[in-house]
Amino acid sequence: MHTNTHAIEVTDLTVAYRDKPVLWDVDLAVPAGILMAIVGPNGAGKTTLIKAILGLAPIAAGQTLIYGKPYAVQRRLVGYVPQRGSVDWDFPTNVLDVVMMGRYGALGWIRRPGSRERNLAYEALEKVEMQDFADRQISQLSGGQQQRVFLARALVQDAQVYFMDEPFQGVDATTERTIITLLQELRSAGKTVVVVHHDLQTVPEYFDWVTLLNVRRIASGAVSEVFTEENLRLTYGGRVAIMGQNAEARMLSGPLSAADHTKDRNTWI
């Protein structure tokens, strides 16, 4: 039914914070059924791009479409996994309750979640291997477990397009495995998954599409075509070496994340 339209289409998108552009004239066309990474240095506007598409950041100019229509009418088709650090994990609630929040939109106003929502939440928790933690208070979770709970909350939405903001941030190797397997399953099921990613080394292994972003869109396309040393140099400035010198690329991308978190969270009031 959506054969000719792109899953995500962004045209001339500009977002500014006060007088400073965070995103400048970004164009993006993402076909359906792919797994795409957004990479770029600190302050490149990766989170802002996702938030602008989801209507969470004010757009100065441009347009974003989901399957050819504005996000506001396609909301049901879109799932969102925010940065893990964006919420207070000491909030008095448990894992199952957080996952059920993914059904609140479908429930609509006032109606409370019931057994149907509970079952869906358990199913989603099974997919992220967290079913044994359903009754656990969320403050007792490790970073990787928190991330999986957020993922489960997006899964219960049963969306077509998923946006995930650094789902691999600070998780252990096992969790990273679980998550990437899950994302690849989603892609196989025809869903489109867009992931803000920091580890350049794993891009070719995990993803089939990549967007290189640094305020402007540097390049976007199949990893085999656009994930080149030249494009990376354009994105990160200075010298960045990948292909065989992974350590340096990692060094450049690794420590950026922490600063990114605080900034992105405080940008929009």
Partner: peptide
Amino acid sequence: KLLSFDPDFGATQG
């Protein structure tokens, strides 16, 4: 509850 825990996610829920 949604507003208090995760307002951004709440917005994406409509």
